[in-house]
Simulated scan of single mutants.
Amino acid sequence: MKSYLNVNDIMKINGVSRAKAYKILRTLRAEKQDGVAFQDTYESKLIGKAVIPSKIYLNFFPHASGSIRALGE
Protein backbone atom coordinates (compact mmCIF):
# COMPACT_ATOMS: atom_id res chain seq x y z
CA MET A 1 0.00 0.00 0.00
CA LYS A 2 1.24 3.48 -0.81
CA SER A 3 2.20 5.61 2.19
CA TYR A 4 1.19 8.90 0.58
CA LEU A 5 -1.41 9.76 -2.03
CA ASN A 6 -1.03 12.53 -4.57
CA VAL A 7 -3.63 14.26 -6.74
CA ASN A 8 -3.36 11.67 -9.52
CA ASP A 9 -4.01 8.86 -7.03
CA ILE A 10 -7.08 10.65 -5.65
CA MET A 11 -8.36 11.17 -9.20
CA LYS A 12 -8.04 7.43 -9.95
CA ILE A 13 -9.56 6.25 -6.67
CA ASN A 14 -12.56 8.61 -6.63
CA GLY A 15 -13.03 9.04 -10.38
CA VAL A 16 -13.06 12.83 -10.10
CA SER A 17 -11.55 15.74 -12.02
CA ARG A 18 -8.17 17.24 -11.15
CA ALA A 19 -9.85 20.31 -9.61
CA LYS A 20 -12.05 18.15 -7.36
CA ALA A 21 -9.05 15.99 -6.39
CA TYR A 22 -7.12 19.10 -5.32
CA LYS A 23 -10.13 20.24 -3.29
CA ILE A 24 -10.28 16.85 -1.53
CA LEU A 25 -6.52 17.00 -0.87
CA ARG A 26 -6.71 20.51 0.62
CA THR A 27 -9.73 19.60 2.74
CA LEU A 28 -8.12 16.46 4.18
CA ARG A 29 -4.84 18.27 4.90
CA ALA A 30 -6.79 20.88 6.90
CA GLU A 31 -8.89 18.39 8.91
CA LYS A 32 -7.74 18.02 12.49
CA GLN A 33 -6.94 14.61 13.89
CA ASP A 34 -5.87 14.32 17.49
CA GLY A 35 -6.05 18.11 17.68
CA VAL A 36 -3.54 18.74 14.86
CA ALA A 37 -4.12 19.31 11.17
CA PHE A 38 -1.70 17.45 8.90
CA GLN A 39 -0.83 20.67 7.05
CA ASP A 40 0.58 22.08 10.31
CA THR A 41 2.95 19.18 10.98
CA TYR A 42 6.69 19.08 10.37
CA GLU A 43 6.20 16.01 8.16
CA SER A 44 3.86 17.98 5.91
CA LYS A 45 6.30 20.83 5.53
CA LEU A 46 9.10 18.36 4.78
CA ILE A 47 7.34 16.40 2.02
CA GLY A 48 5.35 19.24 0.46
CA LYS A 49 1.78 20.29 -0.13
CA ALA A 50 0.82 17.88 -2.90
CA VAL A 51 0.35 14.68 -0.86
CA ILE A 52 -1.72 13.25 1.98
CA PRO A 53 -0.88 10.15 4.06
CA SER A 54 -3.03 7.23 3.00
CA LYS A 55 -3.89 6.62 6.69
CA ILE A 56 -5.62 10.02 6.89
CA TYR A 57 -7.32 9.45 3.53
CA LEU A 58 -8.70 6.10 4.74
CA ASN A 59 -10.17 7.71 7.86
CA PHE A 60 -12.49 9.70 5.57
CA PHE A 61 -12.87 7.19 2.71
CA PRO A 62 -12.68 3.72 4.33
CA HIS A 63 -14.12 2.01 1.23
CA ALA A 64 -11.00 2.98 -0.76
CA SER A 65 -8.56 0.58 0.92
CA GLY A 66 -8.67 -1.92 -1.95
CA SER A 67 -8.09 0.83 -4.50
CA ILE A 68 -5.07 2.12 -2.61
CA ARG A 69 -3.61 -1.38 -2.42
CA ALA A 70 -4.05 -1.72 -6.19
CA LEU A 71 -2.18 1.57 -6.76
CA GLY A 72 0.80 0.24 -4.83
CA GLU A 73 1.19 -2.82 -7.03
Rank of each mutant, 00 (worst) to 15 (best):
S54A: 13
E73P: 03
D34K: 14
L46T: 05
N8G: 10
Q33D: 15
L71Q: 06
Y4S: 04
Q39S: 13
Y22M: 08
K2P: 01
R18N: 08
F38T: 00
D34E: 15
I13V: 11
N6Y: 07
G72H: 06
Q33L: 14
Y42D: 06
N8P: 00
G15E: 06
K12P: 01
T41E: 02
P53S: 00
Y57K: 05
S44W: 02
I52F: 05
K49H: 09
E43N: 03
Y42T: 14
Q33I: 12
V51C: 04
Q39N: 14
T41V: 02
S17G: 15
K23L: 11
K32A: 11
S65E: 14
I52G: 05
F38Y: 14
K12C: 03
A64K: 10
V51L: 04
A64R: 11
S67G: 12
G72K: 07
R18L: 08
V7M: 07
G35A: 07
G15A: 07
A37N: 06
S44T: 01
S3Q: 14
K32V: 08
V16M: 06
V16C: 11
I10Q: 02
D9V: 03
N14E: 14
A30I: 01
I56A: 04
P53W: 00
I13F: 02
A30C: 07
A70H: 09
M11I: 06
N14R: 15
K32S: 13
Y57R: 06
M11N: 01
D40R: 03
Y22K: 07
G48C: 03
N59A: 13
S54T: 13
A19T: 15
S67T: 01
G35Y: 03
D34I: 08
K45H: 07
L28V: 06
S44H: 09
K2L: 14
I56T: 05
A30D: 10
N6A: 07
K12T: 15
K12N: 13
A50T: 15
Y4K: 09
K12R: 14
F38M: 01
K49W: 10
G15C: 05
A50R: 15
I24D: 04
D40C: 06
I10P: 02
N6H: 08
A50I: 11
Y57E: 00
G35W: 03
L46E: 10
R29Y: 01
E31N: 09
G15S: 08
T41M: 04
T27I: 12
E73L: 12
K32C: 09
